[in-house]
């Protein structure tokens, strides 16, 4: 599975395809203030990125890819 959850810490890695978005979405609804580790991520689908943004979680480790980084800057703005 490309995402792992330990308490409030959500770690994504590798490629996160559109199919992950509903699962991640369900998982995040149960977590009050998620903290994201995304430095292992190679690429995430737009739908997954949207779930992360909508969760208003805290981005602790940023993705290396500049496009993803720019996209998730919205996450910080949304908080």
């Amino acid at each position: 599975m490309p995402f792992a959850i330990e308490g409030a810490r959500v770690t994504l890695q590798g490629h996160c395809a559109v199919e992950e978005a509903p699962d991640l979405f369900q998982a995040l609804i149960a977590i009050e203030r998620p903290v994201f580790d995304l430095d292992q991520v190679v690429y995430i689908h737009t739908a997954v990125a949207q779930v992360l943004i909508a969760s208003r979680g805290q981005l602790e480790r940023r993705p290396a890819d500049p496009t993803l980084a720019a996209c998730l800057a919205t996450l910080e703005a949304a908080r």
């Binding site: 978005a21 995040l28 739908a47 943004i53 909508a54 500049p66 996209c71 949304a78």
Partner: peptide, 23 residues
Amino acid sequence: VLRVVPNRTLGALDTVDPLQCWL
């Protein structure tokens, strides 16, 4: 330069449709 913005006001997470694009 790249800026990604939601094109609507985002409510609570559970009101969002994860399979709709709103960026």
